[in-house]
Design a protein around this nucleic acid. Sequence first.
DNA 1: AACCAACACAACCGCCCAACA
DNA 2: ATGTTGGGCGGTTGTGTTGGT
Length: 357
Amino acid sequence: MGHHCCSKQKVKRGLWSPEEDEKLIKQITTHGHGCWSSVPKLAGLQRCGKSCRLRWINYLRPDLRRGSFTEQEERTIIDVHRILGNRWAQIAKHLPGRTDNEVKNFWNSCIKKKLIAQGLDPNTHNLLSPHQIPILNANNSKHNYDPTKPVFSIINNPSSQTKDAKRLNPSLVRPQSSADTNYAHPVMTTDHHNLYENSHPTSNLHYQDYNFSFKNDVSHQSTMGFSTRPLAVESTKMPMLLPLSSSSSPNPLEFGTVVQSWSGNSNLGVGFEQTRRAEDRYQEMLQVPQMVCPQEFVNKGLDLRGGGHVEGGQTNMDMITSFDGCNMDLEFMEAALMPCGMYSNLGSLDQLAWDCN
DNA sequence: AACCAACACAACCGCCCAACA
DNA sequence: ATGTTGGGCGGTTGTGTTGGT
């Protein structure tokens, strides 16, 4: 098999060697990639153009951010995934320095399981009915998906830290000889990076000595503050974002105005729902849900049903039930997704590429 | 120490779409 | 209008690693 773009030529497959990376980096930093199908030939590589493109985009680009996903990034992935679904490339655009492949892998290997363990359907972000929730026996898994723990608890895993350290310190990971076929990490040199920087003067990312650091570090920015609470609106075509105050947000009303509270729910404002038994949450679906209306909705007098206006700065859940017809103010949606400037390169919501049909 | 299962993630596959001849 | 090509993307696979027995 193989792609039509490279079916005629003899191409190498599998992991990339340091020498191959070196050639590819040298080619792109000095000449740019241009037509990807011509890159292998120009770089002296026996790879298909697509493979070169993938290698560059996912691993060799100097503006990549490596290492574990932060809690904030995980929240972002979940929140954007709730809107866009498995559109990894679009989701990755909300995570500077992350690739679609990385986001996809992280979702499939980590977030998905956590959501399921929390009684949430990873596809719809709605509650699973009790009989849909798998019985997770911690004894059968390396990972302990304790449903009594919050969804977001991924960081500071010693083993992953070790991996990160290896990634960021090539001396720990680079093979001692070219015969080491396990090599799969960038080998861009500072010289290469300087070349790339010179040819990409708009880059605001800093690269030195194999260590990717950001001049504009997003790690200290405030969170999006979106709740992971699933909506109890079964008719909702597009799940609704619920901007909610977060423990890490200094201002609990930073992103929204509390319009109506969950009845009898004491953990409002914690930001991310602490886990309860799935049965309890399933019962909760029958209750009138809390709605936290973003201040921007109120300011804009946005009618979430499409057409009218929110009166008196108040709305209710009955009004916010559906995105059918896609009457949502897309411009606002973008703004709501970018409350703290953590997203880059999003000039318009076209890039969100909603499928409103 | 050896084996095995589960995991993590790099890489590939196949499809879609836009541009172009 | 049609066929070809290249780029992009999501889904899937392959393989090395890790941890438990």
